[in-house]
Design a protein around this nucleic acid. Sequence first.
RNA 1: GGCCCCGUAGCUCAGCUGGAUAGAGCAACGGACUUCUAAUCCGUAGGUCGCAUGUUCGAAUCAUGCCGGGGUCGCCA
Length: 577
Amino acid sequence: MNLFAEFLQVVAKAVATVAAERGVPLPDLSRVTVEPPRDRSHGDISTNAAMVLNKAFGMPPNLLAQSLSALLSAHKSVAAADIAGPGFINIKLVASEWPRVLRAVLAEGGAYGTSTLGCGKKANVEYVSANPTGPLHVGHVRGAVFGDALAELLTASGYEVTREYYINDAGAQVDVLARSAYLRYLEALGETVGEIPAGLYPGDYLKPVGQALAAEHGTALKDKPEAVWLPIVRERAIEMMMALIRDDLAALNIRQEVFASEKALHESGQVKETIDELRERGLVYQGTLPPPKGEVPEDWEDREQTLFRTTGFGDDIDRPLLKSDGSYTYFASDVAYSRNKIRRGFDELIYILGADHGGYVKRLESLGSALAANRKIEVIVRLCQLVKLYRAGEPVRMSKRAGEFVTLRNVVDEVGPDAVRFMMLFRKNEAPLDFDFAKVTEQSKDNPVFYVQYAHARTCSVIRNAAEEGLKPAKTPEFDLLSDEAELGLVRRMAEFPRLLEAAAQAHEPHRVAFYLYDLAGDFHALWNKGKDSPHLRFILTEDVKLTQTRLAFLMAIRYVLANGLRILGVRPAEEM
RNA sequence: GGCCCCGUAGCUCAGCUGGAUAGAGCAACGGACUUCUAAUCCGUAGGUCGCAUGUUCGAAUCAUGCCGGGGUCGCCA
């Protein structure tokens, strides 16, 4: 149940009635909002209908508001519909509406908040997609968590979601990986390799690859030319690196179902096919690109390349498909990959990238329209800003040259997947984020992870304590017994949850769920503390069984909303702390 | 120089795609606190929403131009 969506229908009906009376065609309602007012004193639900539609009706907003409010106040759920300010209609609901919300939460349980907003559209969320050359590091964490939460949010909103990882297993970097692994192979055979030369990957994580190769091939690869061993070593190394990466992701409770290979796009001929198709459509030409505006790089020289006319689809410049030596660019496989996704039937292609990939947004978007054929493909790119690590206020230093970087594992092992996930989502994605190891493990109100988790644990603990005294949540609770402003405030907040999820899904902004939960937890803790001064507000009142049972049912409703929100963020709701 | 993101209270940030008197949390100040789970709570104060024009009933939000900070800019991935 979505209270605000229900009332949008009520308002729409009132609008239609007035339109019929005045002989005006039914106006477009897309700008009409039905939302909780910022200020409580303005009632429970507020709509801007009269201000947005007054032109279509050819009457001043105040007059239209009067007609609408007269119709609205006749509705059985409405206690009053007042006109305020420049033409807002503020609706006050009858008291019985709030028990209705709570009964709906209990009836829907884990499904409360879900919607059919997406109409079953197929969405592909691609995230992480780190090069398979080593373990994931802290820079990958935010995108990983964001992508995963967004996928969950869209699933809850009625999309059919595929979680996908694109493996860059075809470029020069995997050859570097292979050469690095080969040294480890020689090392495993007992040779002294000394320090790993600059330009190769020095990390210890390649030692197991060397050992595996030694075990599987013995000395067979040893004195062979690179052309012989490289493909073998490369394939094995990539395989093992991907296993490592999957483990890293699993530590964060992330499981993507599709791992798409760039190499496979080449081997299956899809890259060539794609370019041929574009050629047939006259979108490919030989040409040179202009140097960057302003400061021209010193080693700049014009080179002729095979270019794709992406400017026809909203890009700033045309993009190269073939390098000047005739080999494929990385972008060529990107084009083939986009085409591949579209052919798999996705309506929405969503990319989660790091902020340093800002330059990719336009070219990816242009591919959506260039390859859509006659379909409508939506390409949505979300960039995640940098995460700065702190330890008790001090920035954590990393030296890339020495090969020392904080891995995803380091972070997850230290603070746990739940805290990592919540903190990564407790900021909008395009804002930089500070992550302090000390703070996220702190057991205090200053730590939002703890604050929200504790709210959930508290609901569980009260229900447990009550059970020990033989008190169970009522089967048919009498929610009209809840009349304190703190209780009603909490119900109002819960009523907003479905609306909030829809808005968050539409905007592709899972952080809104995190902030909502923080507010909800705050409301709950406030009510709890009110019970200190006002014992009649406590949840367990042994002398009033009926009220206690109702409040326990109320607690269950709160718990559902907290748990449903946390599930979207991928944070496990704690039952005790 | 082009493009992208950011600029909101002393600090860290929200602000529901244009709504009403711009909100939280820290920090500051004043109170409460032997608790159904201890890891607190209530209140006060704090603002030229970077600046300037424009769009309209109405702008932190949209458009244009500046200012400041960050990122990025052919064949690498």
